[in-house]
Structure formats: C-alpha cells, structure tokens
C-alpha cells in the first residue's frame, strides 16, 4: 500500500465530505434548523450542472454558477414555505417536511434525468498532478483548497462579524431577537440561501469525481449528518476536522480492509465515539 497516496486520497475524500457538510453545519449549529433535503439538493445541483454541460455549449464554470443560482432560488422558496415552522422552531415538523421535500426533489429528478448514472466531465478532472509516486487531479486540488477557504470565511463571519453575532442571537431565540431589533425572518432566509448555495457549490466541485445518480441524495445526507454530529453540532472547526478524519478513515479502511463495508464502518465509529463522548467535539 502506498501510504502517502492513501493519505492524499483520504484528504480529498475528506475535504469533499467537509465541503458538503458545511451548509448543514451552519444551518444546524448557527440557526438550529434541520434540512433533510440536503442530500437531494446536492444531487439536484449536480444534475443541473451535468444537464447544462451536456445540452449546451456552456463551460464548466458558468454551468456551475447557474446551478448555484438555481439552488439559491430553491432555498428561498423552501424557506418561504417553511417560514412559520422555522419561527416557532418546530424541529420535528421541519424534519418531516424537509425529508418529504427531499423525496419530491428525488422523484422530480428521476422523472427529468432518469435513473442511469452520468458523469460531469470537466477538464480539471483529467489534469493529473504528479509528485514522485503520488498523484491527484486539479479538480481534487480545487476541492481541497476551496473547502479550506470556505471554512475559513465561514468561521470568520460567525466569530468576527456583525452578521455572525446576529445569526447567533437568532439561533438562540428568534422572537427575542426581534425585540432587540433584528429581522429574524430575513436572517433565516439568508441562512437557508447560504445553505443552498454551499451545498450547490459542494455538488459542482465534488460530484465530477464520481458518477452521479438521482438516488445518491440519501447517502450524502447520512455522511453529512455523521460529520455534523461528530463535529459537535454547529462547530465549524469540528466539522472540518471530522470531515477530514472521516475521509482518511474511508481511504485507509478501503485499502486495508474492503471498500464494501466503509459506510458500515463509519457508523461503527460514530457509535463508538458518541458512547464515549456524547457531546462530540463541542467545547461548550
């Protein structure tokens, strides 16, 4: 086994995981909202990008941008529909509603795009970067770098800016925040749009690595859930670390044992971790 190569694969897989999980980390941690349609939104963003690339002459960057804008609009629509549930922090109903919304997205995508696997082809996936006996693609480098930048920016916004402080108080108590002059409804819409944009960005970056299927949403939301919970619900730094570790685990487990049982093994790790440390990586 080439340990260095497996480590690089692990970091690439891990930054992909972390990138996909970022939107939900903010949603759950900073705003106490859940979105079980997260995985299907990932799927839909990937398919919109694929559709544009295959049916028009538009290049990858622009197709990706269109896909992100489309998801942002979808995010606004979802949040407007769920507005009342969100203001009353009715998490159980939100869970069911978003889960249902996810299956609707999956059904619609199935009708539009069919059940066969497709691939998003980008030039960056074909560009190999070689160092001695290890290699990775330009796309993988892009995923890694963009993920680190996104986490840095999000951490800065949440910890060091007015918007971050406003989001924290809305997360604590949206009705009380209104009495302190904060427009909680708009803040929720903004957070949800951010979630949609981040998951779309993750999709157009990560999805080109593997074939895409309209049924892949569930797998994505499960991995995201594991990262968010292990990271310590809403702990941005924690999610990044857990995402990377999970990627390394996936890579080495696949190489040393078998790739077939990776998901099961990930859940075994989740169980063991939560039994030992129920609060995850959360500090307070």
């Amino acid at each position: 086994m080439n340990v260095a190569q497996q480590a690089i694969n692990g970091l690439v897989i891990g930054s992909g995981y972390a990138c996909v999980a970022l939107g939900w980390t903010i949603l759950l941690g900073a705003a106490r909202l859940v979105n079980f349609a997260h995985g299907q939104m990932y799927m839909l963003a990937a398919f919109i990008c694929w559709f544009i690339l295959t049916r028009s002459g538009i290049g990858y960057p622009l197709a990706a941008a269109i896909s992100i804008v489309a998801m942002a609009l979808l995010g606004v629509g979802m949040q407007l529909m769920m507005g009342r549930l969100v203001m009353t922090q009715n998490l159980t109903s939100l869970m069911i509603v978003t889960l249902g919304f996810g299956y609707i997205l999956q059904g619609v995508a199935g009708l539009l795009f069919g059940g066969a696997p497709h691939t998003i082809t980008t030039e960056l996936v074909q560009q190999k970067i070689q160092f001695g006996d290890v290699w990775f693609t330009s796309q993988e480098l892009l995923i890694f770098v963009v993920t680190l930048i996104l986490y840095g920016v999000v951490w800065l916004v949440l910890q060091r800016t007015r918007q971050g402080a406003i989001i924290r108080s809305v997360a604590e108590d949206p009705k009380l925040a209104q009495l302190f002059g904060i427009d909680s409804r708009s803040v929720y819409i903004a957070i949800f749009v951010l979630e949609a944009v981040l998951v779309a960005l993750a999709a157009v970056l990560v999805a080109p690595r593997t074939p895409i299927l309209t049924s892949m949403g569930f797998e994505e939301v499960i991995i995201t859930f594991v990262i968010v919970v292990l990271g310590g619900i809403g702990n941005v730094g924690g999610a990044l670390i857990v995402g990377m570790l999970l990627g390394l685990f996936t890579s080495f487990f696949g190489a040393l044992v078998t790739p077939a049982y990776t998901t099961a093994a990930i859940f075994a790790v989740l169980l063991a971790f939560l039994i030992a440390k129920p609060e995850g990586l959360r500090t307070r």
């Binding site: 920016v153 060091r160 800016t161 007015r162 604590e172």
Partner: peptide
C-alpha cells in the same frame, strides 16, 4: 448581542 448593531465589524 443587544449592542450588535453599533458595535460589530463587517466581514
């Protein structure tokens, strides 16, 4: 958090 409007920084 109450003073956030006047005493916080932009990104």
């Amino acid at each position: 958090s109450v003073l956030v409007g006047n005493h916080s920084a932009s990104l």
